[in-house]
Amino acid sequence: MAEEKKDTDLWEVFIQPKNGLSHRHCGSIHASDRNMAILAARNVYARRGEGQSIWVVKSKDIVSSDPNEKAENFSADDKIYRHPTFYDVPDDVGHM
């Protein structure tokens, strides 16, 4: 039987270290379906008690912004009034 000359899907792997923390990206794996993806993610990224829950998502299903559009997407410098230090409060008011 001949082999299909292409890779299986690439999946991104996220692990949640423990309750209360978010799932965090830790790498990617190749797998033919979602069950295999979870198995591969476990074998590759969870050999030392790294967490308690694994998410896998097909890399091609992730929609991402262009890093060159950082200024448009993450404007901050022109909106300094969104930061607490923009507001003057007398020192003797104490911590606020």
């Binding site: 039987m1 082999e3 299909e4 299986t8 797998a31 033919s32 379906d33 295999m36």
Partner: peptide, 16 residues
């Protein structure tokens, strides 16, 4: 390992 890779693909496409 060819048959394993093929079987995994076949299984995936059937489930799909």
């Amino acid at each position: 390992g060819l048959w394993v890779r093929n079987a995994a693909r076949m299984h995936a496409s059937k489930n799909q």
